[in-house]
Every structure is written in structure tokens, then in C-alpha cells.
Simulated assay, not measured.
Amino acid sequence: PRQPEGVVRAPRETVAEAQALLDAGRPFHAHEVFEDAWKSGPEDERALWRGLAQLAVGLTHAARGNTVGGARLLRRGADAVEEWERGRGEDRPYGVDLAGVVRWARELAGRVAAGGEPVDAVVEAPRLGP
């Protein structure tokens, strides 16, 4: 089943729902939750939510065996999140550990690109916050 689209959530609700979906091995659904925040949130936060959505869809591709696309999206999402954080100087918006998420994405992208094998989305799910 698909995740409902176009749902407007409070930012912390977005993070909590996305984390629950990531923990359940449903990164594409988490991507859709982040995408809702990206499309409905304030303009100055859209790059953050878009970057987090890219990370979730990167994990989706890596889990489905598209290692090239997965690694690319993980790196692109990490770059976007890192750039947003630098521009804002805010390293834990809504409880999200941006530095930790960026480290997770870059490390996973390296392993995915080198290994060429699908990853387990549950095992590889990031921790967004503490």
C-alpha cells in the first residue's frame, strides 16, 4: 500500500512518522512523508525536507538493488542537508541530528557503491534523532 500523499503535518510529526517508517523498512514511504513537508512547508525549510526525502529514496534504491542510483541519491541528499545546515547554522532542527544523518548517508553510499549488493532497509535505516 502507498503512503497517503499531500498530508500536512507539523515538523516533529513528520520526523516521527518518517522514523517509524524507516524503522519498519519502508524508506519509500518515509520519502513520501518528507516530500509532503518539502511541498507544504515554509520556503526556507524546503531544501532540508527535499534532502531528507532524497536520503530516504536513496535507501529505497539501494535496498532494491539499484546501487548506482542509491549511492548517487544518498550523496545528493547528504549534500543538500549539509548545505541547508551550513546556511542556517542549525544542526538539530526538530530533533534531527543533521551531522549524524549526513555521516550515515555518506558511509552507506560508499558501502553501496563498493559492494554492489542490495542492502537491508531495516538494518541500514538511519536514526534521525537521539
Score class of each variant (00 low, 15 high):
67 T>Y: 00
65 G>W: 10
35 E>T: 05
35 E>V: 07
42 P>M: 12
64 R>M: 07
32 E>C: 04
39 K>V: 03
87 G>T: 03
78 A>M: 09
48 L>H: 05
36 D>H: 07
58 G>M: 05
66 N>T: 05
91 D>Y: 08
40 S>A: 13
39 K>S: 12
93 P>F: 12
66 N>K: 07
59 L>A: 08
67 T>K: 00
74 L>G: 03
53 A>F: 06
61 H>W: 11
86 R>I: 02
79 D>I: 01
46 R>K: 15
44 D>N: 13
30 A>V: 14
57 V>M: 10
53 A>Q: 13
46 R>P: 04
57 V>D: 14
76 R>C: 00
94 Y>G: 00
78 A>G: 05
78 A>T: 05
82 E>D: 14
87 G>I: 08
88 R>E: 15
41 G>T: 11
26 R>C: 14
72 R>E: 08
64 R>H: 11
26 R>M: 15
49 W>Q: 02
37 A>T: 04
56 A>H: 04
29 H>Y: 15
43 E>D: 12
30 A>T: 13
48 L>G: 05
68 V>D: 14
31 H>V: 08
74 L>P: 02
98 L>A: 03
71 A>E: 04
49 W>D: 00
61 H>A: 13
33 V>D: 02
35 E>W: 12
74 L>W: 02
51 G>H: 03
31 H>E: 11
97 D>V: 09
98 L>P: 02
76 R>Y: 06
40 S>K: 10
78 A>N: 06
91 D>C: 02
75 R>G: 01
87 G>D: 06
48 L>K: 01
33 V>F: 08
47 A>N: 13
36 D>T: 03
32 E>R: 08
59 L>V: 06
38 W>H: 13
77 G>A: 07
69 G>C: 09
72 R>D: 04
56 A>R: 00
94 Y>H: 14
66 N>H: 07
60 T>E: 15
85 E>C: 11
85 E>L: 07
42 P>W: 10
55 L>M: 14
67 T>S: 11
29 H>A: 14
